[in-house]
């Protein structure tokens, strides 16, 4: 009799634990990890206007890093970027816009005018895809220390660097890093991740947000 009662009271507890385990194993909701804070920055864009990390709050931004004289080694990166942009229709990010910012570390040569020509040569729609540069010391802090992307100027003025995409959410937190991204499958991955992030943003209010917090807690990462 009392044994039965104990057994019966154990069942609900066991069910809760089983549910938690199932959540962790089957990952019904996936989220992107909150990797670290996106750096604060103050840069100048292709229209000679100041852009800051504060302007990007409330938008999802995919950052890339390059210099305008970058040749063949950047072709794949832009191919991936264009592919992502052409497939944005697949992503619903709620009231967040998805933007692209390409930061040049060639502060000597890449003036706003040069960046404007560069944007035009790439066929970039600058209302969505901006190009920017800034003070060399500040850029070191932003790109190397903040975004953790390495670059080094060689004697001939070319730069050695690792093509990298960094995905930042509207709260200013880095949610994805795609290093040595060079082919079309990276576009698939980035679009998929934008979709996951969009779903979390659309569910970031009220009771649904708890399920997404649980997904973070159980490390339900893609």
């Amino acid at each position: 009799m009392s044994k039965k009662v104990i057994v019966r009271s154990v069942i609900p507890v066991a069910l809760i634990i089983a549910a938690a385990l199932a959540f962790a194993v089957f990952q019904p909701i996936q989220v992107l990890p909150r990797i670290r804070l996106s750096p604060g920055y103050l840069l100048v864009n292709q229209d000679d206007q100041t852009i800051t990390s504060e302007d990007a709050r409330g938008d999802i931004v995919l950052y890339t890093f390059t210099y305008s004289r970058c040749g063949a080694e950047c072709a794949d990166m832009y191919e991936t970027l264009r592919e992502v942009q052409s497939r944005l229709g697949e992503v619903d990010a709620g009231d967040n816009d998805i933007k692209f910012i390409t930061i040049s570390f060639d502060t000597q040569r890449d003036t706003p005018e040069v960046l404007q020509d560069y944007a035009a040569s790439l066929g970039a729609d600058t209302s969505r895809w901006q190009f920017a540069t800034g003070d060399p010391g500040h850029l070191e802090n932003v790109i190397k220390a903040g975004f953790e992307v390495y670059y080094q100027e060689a004697d001939d003025g070319d730069f050695a660097f690792a093509p990298t995409f960094v995905l930042v959410d509207g709260w200013g937190v880095i949610r994805g890093e795609y290093r040595y991204a060079t082919n079309a499958s990276d576009a698939d991955k980035i679009v998929h991740h934008l979709d996951i992030l969009g779903e979390e943003i659309r569910n970031s209010h009220g009771a649904a947000s708890l399920a997404y917090e649980a997904a973070h807690f159980f490390l339900c990462y893609p």
Partner: peptide, 28 residues
């Protein structure tokens, strides 16, 4: 200051205020 602010996701910039107050600083 630039280093620590940048890494903490903070950006700041001088904005010219009225002559009496000198300048203000916009910051995160």
């Amino acid at each position: 200051i630039n280093q620590i602010a940048t890494l903490c996701g903070v950006v700041y910039q001088k904005a010219e205020g009225s002559a009496a107050s000198g300048y203000t600083i916009d910051h995160t």
